[in-house]
């Protein structure tokens, strides 16, 4: 079953003066129940507008949105009552309330009583390592904890569909990894459906099954991470050569990404289309009497795919 279905969504922001801004230009996509989909795009791509349309915070100019089969454009309240959102990282929580009070309040907003959610609150406090801070005011928590609390508050609502906008923004490496693990478990263990928007490609690559890439109000790619990797495979290699070598001339013949000097060696990062060009480069280096210490085949990174998609879309 489709958890979310967006058809021909348009959003044009009218201006008091001057020309209106077309933020979303007829996009269509869907998210299946229990799926976790990444939403990528540079600033101004139309991601936030799309997410706000899904939450009912922005009125679409044209198009249909349905959340679990409910028309979210005309029956917004009914549709969004099964939706939780964590927008802009650690905001979305009441800074004067304690961790527990925040959780109780957000459960209450969904019409869930203290009795009903008591065990669930305990479980979330344990799961997000917030138990020790349950009586601490949210403003006194670290940023990572505030973000965990924001996510917990979204979860305590007990909705099936979650919109996460930059859930790892500003977190240190350890907390970011923890957060990714939590998010993954939400789909695998609890069957939640998640649409996750982030600028951090590693987060999207690590957590999402499928990626939607947007730019200038349009969807440029909508495929699984694996398929996108195949499509945009660029065979990136690192050649480590002994000594500091002058290799600038190689740029004329090969797609050299980077030449770097490290620990008395030269690192040459190059994209090679096929095995023929690979061997041609190896032969070339041998002809020049350069000692090859190591060759590493680098995995295609989400960041490169993203850049490629955006470039092609232009």
């Amino acid at each position: 079953m489709k958890a979310l279905e967006v058809k021909d969504l348009h959003k044009t922001y009218p201006q008091w003066r001057g020309e209106s801004t077309k933020a979303v230009k007829g996009i269509s996509f869907s998210v299946n129940e229990g799926e976790i989909v990444g939403f990528l795009g540079p600033n101004g791509a139309g991601k936030t507008t799309t997410i706000k349309c899904l939450c009912g915070l922005v009125e679409p100019t044209k198009g249909n949105i349905s959340i679990f089969g409910i028309d979210a454009v005309n029956e917004t309240r009914k549709a969004v009552s099964n939706t939780s959102a964590v927008l802009e990282g650690n905001r979305n929580i009441y800074w004067r309330l304690t961790t527990r009070e925040n959780l109780e309040f957000f459960a209450g907003l969904q019409g869930r009583s203290g009795k009903e959610v008591g065990p669930e609150i305990e479980r979330l406090l344990e799961r997000f390592d917030l138990k020790e801070k349950e009586d601490t005011a949210a403003r006194k928590l670290s940023r990572g904890m505030q973000q965990k609390l924001a996510l917990s508050c979204a979860l305590i609502r007990g909705t099936d569909f979650l919109l996460l906008d930059e859930p790892t923004l500003g977190l240190d490496v350890k907390t970011s990894k923890e957060m990714r693990r939590f998010v993954k478990r939400l789909t695998t263990e609890e069957g939640k459906t998640i649409l996750l928007s982030s600028h951090d490609m590693n987060v999207v690559e690590d957590v999402c099954e499928r990626v939607i890439i947007m730019n200038e109000g349009k969807i440029l790619a909508n495929d699984s991470v694996e398929n996108l990797k195949d499509i945009f495979k660029i065979n990136l290699y690192d050649f480590i050569l002994e000594g500091e070598q002058e290799l600038q001339k190689l740029k004329e013949k090969y797609d050299v990404n980077e030449i770097k000097y490290e620990n008395g060696n030269t690192k040459l990062r190059v994209s090679l289309k096929d095995s023929e060009s690979f061997y041609s480069l190896v032969n070339h280096l041998q002809e020049k009497d350069l000692r090859l210490k190591e060759v590493k085949n680098l995995d295609t990174q989400m960041e490169e795919i993203f850049m490629n998609v955006i470039e092609r879309g232009r």
């Binding site: 939450c55 009912g56 907003l109």
Partner: peptide, 18 residues
């Protein structure tokens, strides 16, 4: 300002009622 207004719109009740 606090960023909680959006959350009040994501409830089964209406914002005016809240």
């Amino acid at each position: 300002r606090d960023g909680t207004l959006e959350q009040l719109y994501l409830t089964p009740s209406s914002f005016r009622r809240i």
